[in-house]
């Protein structure tokens, strides 16, 4: 199941003009929390880096910080992420890997 998801990710990445990931088998074990937008995250983010970067940077970034990270990936690093996908990614990250809201 994981393998299928992985190849789907790579195919989607290639369709977007991203090079095939040169990841090891181990990184395919990184499994993000299921949720709305997770495939968009895997497809867009996984082209250039393994997804453990997201888990590693959690759970302390607020939505505005995740927004800044996604903006950095698009503007500074040239990630070809469209506006709609960027919004989906930011929402997903804030919900699943964001700083817990204070009571």
């Amino acid at each position: 199941m994981r393998r299928f998801a992985t190849s789907a990710l790579l195919v989607a990445g290639l369709a977007l003009g991203m090079p095939a990931a040169r990841g090891t088998a181990e990184e395919m074990e990184v499994k993000l929390t299921p949720g709305e937008g997770v495939t968009t995250v895997e497809t867009n983010c996984g082209g250039c880096h393994s997804l453990d970067y997201i888990v590693m940077n959690s759970p302390f970034l607020k939505e505005e910080n995740w927004k800044a990270e996604v903006a950095k990936m698009r503007k500074a690093f040239g990630a070809p992420i469209n506006d709609a996908d960027a919004d989906t990614i930011i929402r997903y990250l804030a919900e699943n890997y964001g700083a817990p809201s204070k009571p």
Binding site: M18, P19, R22, G47, C48, F77, G78, A79, P80
Partner: peptide
């Protein structure tokens, strides 16, 4: 180098 040509 970078994966994407657009990355510095």
């Amino acid at each position: 180098g970078p994966v994407l040509p657009a990355t510095p």
